[in-house]
């Protein structure tokens, strides 16, 4: 199972619609980085609206993906984290402090634009 990555001008859009297991998450990390490399994208939005559960490994991978993408010159915004997911993450002590977040895709794109311009 692969997570589809869509290109929109300078941005990459990812809507995660499958339950992320360890393998899928690692595959996704690899796919995203090579896509950024290939397209030279400057911004990435990862939408997690339909993800109902994130365990500590997935959270770590997501955090790393964000850091790696930043290294490659692409800003990442996580959007649509569900309340239940947020509570679980906080309970596990995972704060994703360096990761910008937004309520939904629309606000995520706005935030990217702001950050890239500012």
């Amino acid at each position: 199972m692969r997570v589809p990555i869509l290109k929109l001008h300078n941005y990459l859009l990812i809507s995660v619609q499958v339950e992320l297991d360890d393998q899928t998450a690692l595959q996704f990390q690899e796919d995203l980085l090579s896509k950024i490399h290939k397209e030279g994208s400057t911004g990435v939005v990862i939408d997690l609206t339909s993800v109902e559960m994130i365990d500590s490994f997935i959270a770590k991978v997501l955090g790393e993906v964000v850091e790696m993408s930043n290294l490659m010159g692409a800003k990442v915004v996580l959007t649509g984290i569900q309340p239940a997911v947020a509570i679980t993450l906080i309970d596990m002590g995972i704060k994703l402090e360096e990761v910008p977040t937004a309520l939904d895709l629309e606000q995520g794109l706005e935030k990217l634009q702001q950050e890239l311009e500012g």
Binding site: T79, P83, A86, I90, D104
Partner: peptide, 12 residues
């Protein structure tokens, strides 16, 4: 503090 961090995670 926890509430504030969770709020940040959902994007506010």
């Amino acid at each position: 503090i926890q509430a504030a961090e969770a709020v940040r995670l959902v994007g506010a």
